[in-house]
Amino acid sequence: MSAGTVKLKIDNIEVNVPEGTMILEAARANGVVIPTLCDVEGLTAYGGCRMCMVEIHGSPKLFASCVTPVSTGMEIVTQSDKLKEYRKMALQFILSERSHICSVCVANNSCELQKLANELGVDHVQFEREWTSFPVDSTHDFLVLDRNRCILCTRCVRVCDEIEGVHTLDLKLRGKDEQVIVDLDDQWGESTSCTSCRKCAKVCPVGAIYVEGEALSETKDKNVAKFVLSRRNR
C-alpha cells in the first residue's frame, strides 16, 4: 500500500483510495452507486439533498457521503432498510414541497428526481403537497427559470460561480421560501452579468432551468463542470 492511500470497506468490498477522497467518490470509483441529487462532479460539494447518507460501522450517526472523507478501516454501508426509508422520505419531502407535476414538465423523462423516485419505488407522497405559485422568469432570450420546479440543490448557482465564474445566480430568502435569483433579484433578460452559457440548464437535475424550444434530453449535461475543469487543468 503506497503512502497516502486509505484502505476501507464499502458494502463489504475492500477498496483502496487516495487520502482525502470523499466516501461518495470512493464508492463511485469502485462501482458502488449511491443516489444523489445536489452532487455534480467538478463542483464544490453542497451536502444539501441528504440522499447520499450512508452508515459507518461503529457510529450511530448517518453521514453524507459527498462531504465525508474516507479514513482507514472504515466499514461503510450504503444500502440498508433504514437508509432506503430515509431516502424515500427525503424524496417525498422534495416532491411535496413545490408543485412537481411530471406530466406537464419539460423535464419529463429526463429528470433526476423523477428517475430516483422510480428507482426507489416512491409511488406516492404520503404528505400533503404544496401547490406553489412562485414567479417564472422567461425574460431571457432562451433560458427559463421556473422556481416551482426547483429543488434548491444550487447546482446552477455553483456552476455559474465556480465554472463560468460570473455568479449571476444566487439565492434569496430562507427555508421553504428560498428561491434562486438572477443578479440582485432582477429579471433574467435584464441581467448584465449573465453570459448565456447555458451551464445552469445543463446541470439542473429537474426542469427548473431549461433552454426554451430545445429537447431536455439534448440540453442536459451533468458532466459539463468536470469537462471544463479537465480542459482547464490540461
Binding site: 451536502g47 439533498c49 441528504r50 411535496s96 427555508g175 421553504k176 428560498e178
Partner: peptide
C-alpha cells in the same frame, strides 16, 4: 433552506 430534512 439548505438541506431537505430541515427545509421541507
Amino acid at each position: 433552506g439548505k438541506c431537505v430534512p430541515c427545509r421541507a
